[in-house]
Write a protein that binds this DNA or RNA. Sequence first.
DNA 1: GCTGTAACCTGTCGGC
DNA 2: TGCCGACAGGTTACAG
Length: 281
Amino acid sequence: MPELPEVERVRRSLAHAMLGATFERVTLNRRDLRRPFPAGFAKRLRRQTVSTLTRRGKYLLADLSSGDTLIMHLGMSGWFRVVPRAELRARGRDRDADLENRHDHVIFAMSSGQAVIFNDPRRFGMMDLVPAAKLPEHGSLGPMGPEPLSRSFDARALATRVANRRVALKVALLDQQVVAGIGNIYASEALHLARLSPFREAATIATAGGAPRATAERLTAAIKAVLRRAIALKESERYRDTRFRVYDREGERCVTPGCRGTIARVTQAGRSTFYCPVCQR
DNA sequence: GCTGTAACCTGTCGGC
DNA sequence: TGCCGACAGGTTACAG
């Protein structure tokens, strides 16, 4: 499930194929993903050069020579792979490959000699193309909260955004307008590292005036720590070793030093929350 | 305005 | 072995 660390890894893996390269051919194998592709999507991309490839929350953003920005979201099951264009042509004649790749919805043939392929079985992903100047008005990107690994994200920023929010803290962390890029896994992980209950009212980490309490400091530090660790693991190709603190560990012993609790699982806002009932308060 | 819920979608897994 | 239902989760629309 792509959250910020996974999207960041995808961004880095696409850079060598896309950065400074031109879209020579764009193939859409269907008319929509979660939403229809914008009108003239393939035509508007053709012959455009990618000047920057950045990430905002869980979104990938490619700035183009036309002044447009290509917005890409992986949704639940989306991923990109990069293959040499020659290999793509060979596989195009292979029936087994057709079956295997039946969820390849978008193919970018780049001037770098690479083909960038978007595969998304559940089709919760999306792509959009908007003028860069209109990004602040974009429905999803505009109101998005701060980048959790940026300097602008600190305890005060977090406290300000959850002040007056009566929802559970875990649910608030999933709100991309509170902090960008956190999903179900890292919300549980950060709360466990900060030893904060996922059920506590979000506003309790701030004073009535919106100033941060010590709990906001702990949570901010924990969010940064779990995300940095995940990015480092993926970067070092040790991501298969990723062992979450609580996620998907129901019934196992809590890893907090000195805690004898057992990881529990509940449903909040339709999502699984994993936590330790003993050390998370 | 805020909150909770359902829907979108398909691969996987457990139960029968 | 094969079928069926439950479940996973990011985002959005809608209802309360």
